[in-house]
């Protein structure tokens, strides 16, 4: 079996004196979709921020592509293809849709690649093409989520870290977004680490899943195991 693309071992992260991660272990192989589930405050977002260097961990190891990246600068990880779509989408409100997309390609210097990527994005989400001159802050929640994912694709991700992509969206929009995530995974081979509150939805999409409780991974298995396990369903998936 090939070495995992991303491997966390004993990762501990703290905000001041409050330890949010108490030794997280998880691994992701290339091409997988992994769901990271758990209640509010379990440490899911902190796990993503620890990986991307936004909140540098205190100890443990994070290995991406065979290199220890713990404490590396966020922009150097973006360059390696480790790209995060943060919770709440964080569109630059005063930049146009097109500028938001170009920000996603900030580290790409090949102009032709950028215009090809734009064409690909506008095919994927035609609504973004019609709104390309509008400022990002004027988009609806669903459009902003499309833009956030598109912006991350502009940076040529090899692994996408998606934080709560369904948050605050209508069910029909969520289905559309999840279809696109599956498509990105299948067609581009992009590995995906998905943090979700909506566990049922995430398990339909993911290959494997981890469940976090108060800063630790407490359960892991394949998505179908979770979906079929009566006790897991009761405890985590609302029956």
């Amino acid at each position: 079996m090939a070495a995992p693309m991303l491997e966390l071992k004993g990762v501990r992260t703290a905000y001041g004196n409050i330890e949010a991660l108490k030794g997280v272990d998880l691994d992701i192989r290339e091409g997988e979709i992994i769901a990271l589930l758990g209640a509010n405050g379990a440490g899911k977002t902190t796990t993503l921020c620890s990986i991307t260097g936004l909140v540098p961990p205190k100890s443990g190891s994070i290995v991406f592509d065979g290199q220890d990246i713990r404490g590396a600068r966020t922009e150097s990880l973006v360059r390696k293809g480790l790209i995060m779509v943060p919770e709440g989408r964080r569109i630059f409100p005063g930049l146009t849709v097109l500028e938001n997309l170009k920000m996603g390609a900030y580290l790409i210097s090949d102009k032709r690649a950028i215009s090809q990527d734009l064409e690909y994005i506008f095919n994927l989400f035609p609504i973004l093409a019609t709104r390309s001159r509008q400022s990002g802050g004027t988009l609806s929640g669903g459009e902003q989520q499309m833009l956030a994912i598109s912006r991350s694709l502009m940076g040529h991700p090899r692994m996408l870290l998606l934080d709560e992509p369904s948050l605050g969206l209508a069910p029909i929009v969520i289905r559309n977004i999840f279809d696109i995530i599956r498509k990105i995974n299948r067609e581009n081979g992009t590995t995906i680490l998905l943090v979700e509150q909506n566990a049922n939805l995430a398990l339909m999409l993911a290959h494997r899943a981890y469940i976090m409780t108060t800063g630790l991974i407490t359960l892991s298995g394949t998505a179908s195991e979770f979906l079929n396990d009566e006790s897991v369903r009761k405890a985590y998936l609302g029956g």
Partner: peptide, 13 residues
């Protein structure tokens, strides 16, 4: 100026 964290996530130094 608008969102420093997001700018970092886009690869801005």
């Amino acid at each position: 100026a608008q969102d420093q964290t997001m700018a970092r996530l886009a690869g801005v130094n």
